[in-house]
Computed example of a mutant assay.
Amino acid sequence: MSSNTIRAYAAKEPHSPLVPYEFDAGELTATQVEIDVEYCGLCHSDISILNNDWGVSSYPVVAGHEVIGKVSRLGSEAKGLKIGQRVGLGWNAESCGFCDPCIGGEQVLCTGEQKATIVDHAGGFANKVRAGWQWAIPLPDDIDIESAGPLLCGGVTVFTPLLLNNITALHHVGVIGIGGLGHIALKLLKAWGCEVTAFTSNLDKTEQLKGMGADHVINSKDPEALKALSGKFDLILSTVNVPLDWANILTTVAPKGAIHYVGVPLEPVSVPAFSLISGGKALTGSKTGSPIVLRQLLKFAARKNIKPQIELYPMSKINEAIEHLEAGKARYRVVLKADFE
């Protein structure tokens, strides 16, 4: 078997079971690293790409973009890494390095030759994966490697808004939707020192959510509960993809506060402009995070012992893991352990 051969699990068409798949990845380029995969998270975005829900997939698709593994090969121009070093790889695998956002340290907003790890690129449902060296993020020695994968996508997605909105321990932050993203947000915000309120449609989870870091839990669909929170939140972080009464939720935002979207509602967001103008409020959103933000997150998570709640499957059981996630049974992130023979 060639050193450029990668063994993987791939979808040959939308909504089909993944099957074993081998391919020749070609020669490693000067700026790439190759990573031997140890663990890879399973994210809803993987499902969207496998099923071509976004219309950008080309088959066969090898998904997986929450990779933990060890550097096995280095291109001649790869910097700051060494063979055997444990690294993480998230949503992005390549960026151009020369556009204004890249030069400014915001590679996640690259306007040049940006490449996602699982779009026209083979991801981490495999024994090996490749990426540009800047996107291979060194792991702190004391981080938990089984649960670290989801931090590279879900974790950084909810961490980036804290930096963009200058959130400190003085602030009160609300989190809407306590699933794969929201539960990590609660853990991060508690460690950040914020006052934290969880918005949920299921108050039966109150004690569980408080165990994750919520100081308060409210029903996101209860108008009276929202009315009682008028002007309370410096930031509301929305992770949901369902329509809600955004105009009413906006009333809970403090002057100069924001609702920040990392989930994508299925319908356009509608709020009265006067509410934004009169309170200097904002609707904002963000993608995942650039390499520096990923490094900061992993260091913070290691120092504060922040671990996403995961369910572990062998990668050979990947179709079972996908069925579990699609059925809405995951609590709260699924991680695959590579078990190629």
Rank of each mutant, 00 (worst) to 15 (best):
S3M: 13
T5Y: 10
I6L: 10
E13S: 12
L18R: 10
E22P: 07
E27R: 06
L28N: 00
A30R: 05
Q32G: 02
I35P: 00
E38N: 06
S45Y: 03
S48M: 08
I49P: 00
N51D: 15
N52V: 11
D53W: 00
D53R: 01
S58F: 09
V61R: 00
A63K: 02
G64M: 05
K70V: 12
A78T: 15
G80D: 14
G80L: 11
G84E: 14
R86S: 15
N92D: 13
A93Y: 09
C102F: 10
C102I: 03
E106M: 02
Q107K: 07
V108M: 04
L109A: 07
L109K: 05
C110H: 03
T117G: 00
V119R: 02
V119I: 15
V119L: 10
D120P: 00
G123M: 06
G124I: 04
N127E: 06
K128H: 14
Q134A: 10
A136M: 12
L139Y: 10
P140S: 07
D144W: 05
L151N: 06
L151E: 02
G154C: 12
G155M: 04
L170F: 12
H172A: 13
H172Q: 12
V175Q: 04
G179R: 06
A185M: 09
A185P: 08
A185R: 08
K187S: 13
L188R: 06
L189Y: 05
W192S: 01
T197N: 09
A198C: 11
F199N: 05
D204T: 13
T206S: 11
T206N: 02
M212R: 01
M212V: 03
D215A: 02
P223L: 03
G231E: 14
S238K: 02
V240R: 01
A247I: 12
A247Q: 13
I249M: 13
T251N: 10
P255D: 07
H260C: 06
H260E: 07
P265L: 12
L266Q: 08
E267T: 15
V271N: 12
V271Y: 04
F274T: 08
I277Q: 08
S286W: 06
P291D: 12
I292A: 13
A302C: 11
L312E: 06
S316G: 07
E326S: 03
A330S: 13
Y332N: 13
L336Q: 06
D339Y: 01
